[in-house]
Simulated assay, not measured.
Amino acid sequence: MFAVYAAEPNADAPLDSLTVGERPEPEVPDGWVAVTVTAASLNMHDLWTLRGVGIKPDQFPMILGCDGAGKLADGTDVVLHSVITSPGWRGEETLDPKRTLLTEKHQGTFAETVVVPERNAVPMPSGMTAVQAAVMGTAWLTAYRMLFVKSGLRPGQTMLVQGASGGVSTALVQLGRAAGMRVWVTGRSEEKRALAEKLGAHATFPSGERLPERVDAVFETVGEATWSHSMRALRPGGVIVVSGSTSGPNPGADLQRLFFLQLSVIGSTMGTRDELADLLTFVANAGISPEIGLELPMEQAEEGFRAMLDGDTAGKIVFTR
């Protein structure tokens, strides 16, 4: 079958191992289902896979793609939940120490067909397109969990999103606006800040600029480059919710500010199957149209990967079949 896959790990030149070609048809174990993929979105995780991060060398070749949308054999439209628990796990799937994502142990969604556990194929709401649904399972689910499960924010409070144009950031802006938050965003360029305003941000600021007042919560996916600003931006008792560290994983902790102002730092990773179902309902009911920065046929996947590698993103990158 047709697939876009990592032939081998390549830490220094990840796109050199990106391959568009044929892979064997997948087997379908008991309790799993085959999904014919119609659209799938690109994530930073796919670039890390190409580099060999979070995946053992003997797992290659690995079909890329953490999330997507498609059809079951009976024609049912579904959205894919990419968190796969270990056999016998009964608790929340994000807390399973042996959990995996698609592309870490199991083949991914950049293919004609992907095989997932039956519960990981979530019904798609009517009226939602496959392209819109394809971005939900990773970036939007991460944003939903950060905002509605972890932050403790109430409608009317002020949230700051660090970074204006990435997939999680644009989702946070749209979800926060729809939920009645006051949404502030930082961005490195006027173009990126304009995108955030188009998506519903009430105000935008250059990265690192002092804000007019302190905020109730900061949403962090950037890491070292923005951390000190995030700490300074919080009101006493405020919270930083962290789901990534694209600029570096080791920010200065600023412990004196942390304890003196009684700030909270909360980690957040992906989300559960039930949270994905709730997210889909919320997006459909609120009439939210996810920001798609680039849509390409899967055969042109390298163009999308190169755009992400170069930081040329404005919303999600989606591949279609």
Results as ranks from 00 to 15, higher is better:
V116T: 09
M136I: 01
G187V: 06
V173T: 08
S126I: 06
L172G: 00
A201N: 10
V114K: 09
G156N: 03
S151N: 06
G176S: 09
H106D: 03
R119K: 11
G167C: 10
A134Q: 06
K105Q: 15
F110P: 00
S169N: 07
R154T: 06
P155C: 10
A203I: 08
V168W: 04
A196F: 08
A196W: 06
E197I: 08
A179Y: 05
W184D: 01
G163A: 11
A203P: 00
K192T: 12
Q107P: 01
L195Y: 05
W184E: 00
V149W: 05
R119Y: 13
M146Y: 01
V131L: 15
E190I: 10
A203M: 15
A143W: 02
T129I: 14
L153R: 06
G176Y: 04
M181T: 00
T113S: 15
L172C: 06
R182D: 07
A133N: 07
G176N: 10
P123W: 14
V149K: 12
P155Y: 12
P117A: 14
S189Q: 06
V183Q: 05
Y144A: 12
P125Q: 12
A203F: 12
W184G: 07
L147N: 00
L175G: 02
T158P: 00
E118L: 13
V115F: 13
G156R: 05
T109W: 08
A194V: 02
G200Q: 11
V168N: 01
G208N: 08
R119W: 13
F205Y: 15
W184F: 12
V116C: 13
R119P: 02
G163Y: 11
